[in-house]
Amino acid sequence: MATPKTIALDFDPALIPSGTLWLPRASLSACLRGVMVRSTVGAPLSDAQRLNHFPATPLCSLSWWFTGCSHMLEPSRPGGMAQLTDTRRPLAGRWVFGGPFTRPTSSWCPGPVHGMMVMFLPDALHALTGLEPARFTDQLVDAAGVLPPDWLAMCEQVQDAPDDAQRVDLLEDFLEPRWQACRPGLPLQAHRYGDWVTHLSQRAAVSGPGRSLRQLERRVKRWTGLPLRELRGMARSEQAFFDAVTAQVETGSIRWADIAADNGYADQSHLCRMSRRITGFSPEALLAGIEKEEAFWAYRIWM
């Protein structure tokens, strides 16, 4: 998988290292988007600094905690971003499986934590396990209740491994033969959401009887859990995000109207509405958070 362009914003020097993004070996690039590892062990963080913000995403996830735990925050206002004072819901199970999310989410860690999140392309996960991503849209569930027995044995091995590098190796060694046995004939690209959605549409168009737009959209939703229109919106939002960050680094300023026009938005207001829908924040607030706040570590990893 191609690594996003290397960039550097004006990060607050007080921020702890964001964590590590492990990119999959080439043979798994159409199966995994990446593996995020985050450790706050030994870092003197306040309660507010233990927040974690995540965007809406078409990806499915599988998560481990090697130290500590995490609680989901439930927003008190529908459609709003969760606050530290909102209801906290402990995650169920030793390992947690997540489906695609149509809205941004936030979690909070009550203490030091060392965890790992594996991010699967939903159609690949469907091919590997038979799970229907649509069943798990906007949900985090106990992985032991949904994954096949051989997957749970792999989870146990990963849990017991001595370090992150060996954990990722165990995961990839488990997935590689299974993926080679079930991967689609039409190769998919996964450099960014836009590439993936384009190739997913092509695959849907040549898979099975029927070539109508409605039949294509039904196949895509079955494989991914989200409508094709939603996937395209997320792809466009991701590209706008990278374009804005690149403009900030290369020129020192961002012309939001140009970013909106270049990525197919009706106008700057349309871009701002979609940013809030997918991340919970305006574009300016999102970039400021990435530069200054611990809670945005997941965004920093992708940069």
Rank of each mutant, 00 (worst) to 15 (best):
G280W: 02
I16Q: 08
F101V: 04
F241P: 00
M117W: 00
L128E: 07
A257D: 09
R276Q: 14
P122T: 02
G79F: 01
K5I: 10
R218D: 14
G233T: 04
G80D: 15
F97Y: 13
D164H: 15
G210C: 06
K221E: 14
Q268Y: 02
R103W: 01
L62R: 14
H53N: 13
G115S: 11
S18F: 07
W151I: 08
D258R: 04
S39I: 06
D86C: 02
R192Q: 09
I254E: 01
Q239S: 14
S106I: 00
A30T: 07
Q268R: 11
F66V: 12
G210A: 14
P209M: 13
Q202D: 12
T279N: 15
D163Y: 05
Q189G: 14
K221Y: 04
Q159D: 15
A261G: 08
L28R: 05
I259Q: 02
P78I: 03
Q49E: 14
Q202R: 15
L32F: 03
D47V: 06
G145S: 07
G42L: 11
N263K: 01
A205Q: 08
S39T: 15
L91Q: 15
E172S: 10
V168M: 14
C60E: 00
V220G: 09
S29H: 09
T224I: 10
P112N: 08
M234H: 03
P149V: 10
T85E: 10
G98I: 04
P177S: 09
S212Q: 04
F66H: 10
L175C: 12
P149Q: 08
